[in-house]
Design a protein around this nucleic acid. Structure first.
Length: 480
RNA sequence: GCGACGUUGGUGCAGUCCGGUUCAGCACGUCGCCCUUUCAAGGCGAAGACCAGCGGUUCAAAUCCGCUACGUCGCACCA
């Protein structure tokens, strides 16, 4: 196979959302699968939309998922520079060539004229598009404007008839009639290229072997094909990836909640779960596999398995997958990752908590709600919650008193099995179901009806605090 | 308005390119049972789509063709 070179080419307009990152991931996977190169190129040709730390946000997003690039603005490479704003002369040379060939022309139309033109077209119910005004300028008219120093742009002279076809390795042949293609601006009046010119020039110069981008670009592929033809270049294989949509089937946006991988990570999603989930957005291996580790993705990823219908970001599925990955973590690993989410505790406690909480959360940020009872001094009780089903104040009291007596005999709570056996015996002696007896004890110790396993909770809480809480619960009941 | 792309159970996907051994497969979710001192996790099982609709081609269509509907995207000196 020829050298595979795939590029991810975002523009620095903010933290890339997961849909863009999914596109980056596909490029990364294809490059790694083939032993090719993954290239990062920054499309910073719009100064107006640029964000201060835009570049850093992009780099950080890729790093979070471990999508290491081989060439890029920070690491360089043989085809740099990798920021389009630093390649301006290249674009200018290429447009000059097109103009010389008669395949592009200068346009002196003002914003106002264009706006009026579009308004008129809209009013007439027509498709808005450039009206070829400057394409038909005579040599004298052109010279006149040059003399006046009028600002100008360069437009692509799209053939008025015929059609343009692109072979797409995801959608098959795509065809659009040239009459529906606008005379796109290639070079703006500030000397910067537009996307259309820049991608074609750079993809060619950087020897990109596979062009992958979101399918929202499909309508403009004729402009790119025409440019390749005008330059006399081979067109590399193109694939328009299905877009990532929110649950409402609309293009993903801030409205849908978290959108950057950093946000997801901060909400308690594991990066390996995120990677796995994103890979499945628009790609599938077969009809039954859901879980893929990075190495498997690299091994299994092929272009023919890319879907053509848009992919919907199914948060419920992400949650499930994340829980799956959390459960698979070793206790040590889990404790280390949980640490930032439970700042009020120490490493040893976290490690002890790991086996109890690991399989009870879908996201790391759910851990605090599960174990917060450990970090409070004393609990306030609503006596009613201490009295479970089929119980009354007297029986709850009896249960807690018996439990206290049993626990009091133990200097340490380390032997969970022994303590549990004794408490079970207490329940039986009182003629209670385990549910009733342990239910009362659970509320007394943890303050809630749902908690991690009781014996372990008491062990971690410690003898002193546990007994104090039971005592307080008893007095709360005695008050009734 | 014009154009492009898409449309499989409640949800997300596979199967569609190379029509016929799949009375449409998997996962999430839901429900039931088991386990059980709670909640989870785990095990077992169940319900749920006739493949957007209509019309063609064919001995045979989710799979090919056409039309309609719906959805999304594009139509900037933005990417």
């Amino acid at each position: 196979m020829t050298d595979i070179r795939v590029r991810f080419a975002p523009s620095p307009t903010g933290a890339p959302h997961v849909g863009n990152i999914r596109t980056a991931l596909f490029g990364y996977l294809w490059a790694r699968h083939t032993g090719g190169k993954f290239i990062l190129r920054i499309e910073d040709t719009d100064q107006a939309r640029e964000v201060e730390n835009g570049l850093e946000l992009i780099l950080e997003s890729l790093r979070v998922l471990g999508l290491q690039w081989d060439e890029g603005p920070d690491v360089g490479g043989p085809y740099g520079p990798y920021e389009q704003s630093k390649r301006l002369p290249l674009y200018q040379e290429h447009t000059a060539r097109l103009i010389a060939q008669g395949q592009a022309y200068y346009c002196y139309c003002t914003e106002e004229r264009l706006a009026r033109m579009r308004a008129d077209q809209k009013a007439r119910g027509e498709q808005t598009r450039y009206d070829y005004h400057c394409r038909n300028l005579s040599e004298a008219e052109r010279a006149e404007r040059e003399r006046a120093g009028a600002p100008k742009v360069v437009r692509l002279a799209v053939p008025r008839g015929g059609k343009t076809t692109l072979r797409d390795f995801i959608h098959g042949d795509l065809t659009i009639e040239n009459k529906n293609v606008d005379d796109q601006v290639l070079l703006k009046s500030d000397g910067f290229p537009t996307y259309h010119l820049a991608v074609v020039v750079d993809d060619h110069l950087m020897k990109i072997s596979h062009v992958m981008r979101g399918d929202d670009w499909i309508p403009s592929f004729p402009k790119h094909v025409l440019l390749y033809q005008a330059f006399g270049w081979d067109i590399p294989p193109h694939g328009h990836l299905p877009n990532v949509l929110g649950p409402d089937k609309k293009k993903l946006s801030k409205r849908h909640g978290a959108t950057s991988v950093m946000q997801f990570r901060d909400e308690g999603y594991l990066t390996e779960a995120l990677l796995n989930f994103l890979a499945r957005l628009g790609w599938s291996y077969d009809d039954k596999s859901e879980v893929f580790a990075r190495d498997q993705l690299i091994d299994l990823f092929t272009l023919d398995k890319i879907e053509h219908a848009p992919a919907i970001f199914d948060l419920a599925k992400l949650d499930w997958l994340n829980g799956y990955y959390i459960r698979a973590l070793s206790d040590d690993d889990f404790a280390a990752r949980a640490a930032p989410f439970v700042p009020q505790t120490d490493a040893a406690t976290l490690r002890a908590l790991a086996p109890l909480t690991k399989e009870r959360v879908k996201k790391l940020n759910e851990i605090p709600a599960l174990v917060d009872f450990l970090f409070e001094e004393d609990l306030e009780y609503d006596p009613q919650t201490l009295i479970g089903k089929g119980m009354d104040a007297a029986s709850a009291l009896a249960a807690l008193r018996a439990a206290r007596a049993t626990l009091d005999k133990h200097v340490s709570f380390d032997d969970e099995e022994k303590i549990e056996a004794e408490l079970r015996a207490d329940a039986e002696k009182l003629g209670m179901k385990n549910l009733q007896f342990f239910g009362a004890l659970r509320v007394a110790v943890t303050g809630k009806t749902v908690s991690p396993p009781l014996m372990s909770s008491m062990r971690i809480l410690g003898r002193e605090k546990t007994l104090r809480r039971i005592a307080r619960a008893i007095s709360a009941l005695e008050y009734l």
